[in-house]
Design a protein around this nucleic acid. Structure first.
Lengths: 252, 252
DNA sequence: TCAGTTTGGTGAACGGTGTAAACCGTAAAC
DNA sequence: GTTTACGGTTTACACCGTTCACCAAACTGA
């Protein structure tokens, strides 16, 4: 039997249609076109109302596509890390976030879809998008691997503000905390700070609210990497890490 | 003669219409409605094509409204600063940026319009929006006043990357550098770094890509303030400054 | 095998958007 | 007082998300 059990023919067909929806949507975005139900349906040889058999409304289409875009982009961030030795934890993290910036500046529309779409005030399903973000998982995993190797100092739970303490004990963010001892949860706070800095500089550059020459040079991004290095205990390695960043930013 | 010279009746009429366009647009946004040419025109008792006598296209309307929203919001940031003594430079800066965050979280649509609209790849006029941003002017002015008072260390020009050096010598950002000595231009780089951190944390919170409980508590914003304090030489004052932030965040 | 139901599509329609063209009365300008 | 330019309208086009009624084909169970 070539088909797995419990997957009827219809289910496979439906799954294939979902994949095509995502593929066509990504093609449209890559071509600089607007993401619209009619455009997607038209390119699939369907009419727009047919898409309502697959997504409840336009926002659901956006969420679906955003999720898949994030997943695909994250794969490239991970691939960049795999160019380095497995035990170069700091290098892998730095190379991944650099690839994140490159991707964002290269695909501003996609970045906006994934990272500049309001999530806070939405339904439960959209809130789960927060904890399911592929990129978030990658960065947390890499940062945790780095910490488990060099055990740089992290804040004690008692030193954290109360809200932060409850948040790191039961995180709503894409952090794998299973098996991370309670007293080590300060690492999650460090991660949140790192994500804030990374998101901040990249969003600022993507939206262009800064001197274009500075953006083009990447020096602000490098400055952020440099200043965050001590926080994750890699200040002795920072010149090599910045070298990795510069080499990646110079790529075509 | 009650009318100023060189302002014909038509010009005053036209100016009044511009004002009404902006006023109506801001009302629409404040009510949670979409900003559209038809809605604005309708509320003004006109038809949509008539607006084309005032703005070239929809994006120009957005730019116009965004500029005025930024101006009005900046007035509230400045007003918050004026609650403090004139010589409390650090306090005034901190209170202003706190009000910036409060405004952004209270008016996410307006924030998106002003600060999450791509500027980089647009025409010259939109690029000028960068150097005309009212909020940028306020923050740079406050930071410069602080520096001229306590003269905290700033990077020397020779220590800056070349791109940054040329950028701070002839800034494209809303910084008043007239009269700021060439050797002191490292301050502009400090400002850019501060803006990156401020924009970053606020944008992240507005778009909700973070644990909602952390956003609600404001602890990430406080953490950013706390970590930036040493950069502008106010680390000895940081507990008082954080107190100012907390007091402001507790406001209704 | 046949009846019944679910699935996935169509076409028409509603109200909404930005935008372009043609047209026109009135106010300003010479 | 004639001319011009401004500021508006009407109409129209091509999109958009969304709903509804309808229908054929595919699955389902007796």
């Amino acid at each position: 039997m070539p088909t797995l059990p419990q997957t009827t023919r219809r289910e496979r067909q439906r799954e294939a249609t979902y994949d095509e929806i995502v593929r066509v949507s990504r093609d449209l975005l890559a071509e600089g076109a607007e993401l619209s139900l009619r455009a997607v349906a038209g390119r699939m040889g369907m009419t727009a109302p047919a898409l309502y058999r697959y997504v409840g409304n336009y926002q659901e289409l956006v969420d679906l596509v955003a999720f898949e875009i994030d997943k695909a982009a994250t794969a490239t961030f991970a691939a960049a890390a795999d160019e380095l030795p497995e035990d170069d934890y700091a290098g892998r993290l730095v190379v991944s976030v650099t690839e994140f910036r490159r991707w964002a500046l290269r695909s501003p529309r996609e970045f906006g879809l994934v990272f500049a779409n309001p999530i806070a005030d939405a339904s439960c399903q959209r809130r789960e998008l927060l904890t399911l973000a592929s990129s978030g998982h990658l960065f947390t995993d890499q940062m945790r691997a780095l910490w488990e190797h060099n055990h740089h100092p992290i804040p004690a739970l008692d030193d954290l503000p109360e809200t932060i303490r409850t948040s790191v004990l039961d995180p709503l963010i894409p952090a794998e905390v299973e098996g991370l001892a309670t007293e080590d949860r300060g690492l999650v706070w460090i991660y949140m700070q790192g994500w804030t800095r990374l998101y901040g500089v990249v969003a600022l550059e993507v939206f262009g609210h800064m001197d274009p020459r500075v953006i083009e040079s990447g020096e602000m991004f490098i400055s952020v990497v440099r200043e965050f290095a001590p926080v994750i205990g890699v200040e002795d390695d920072v010149e090599r890490l910045v070298g990795l960043v510069r080499a990646r930013l110079a790529l075509p």
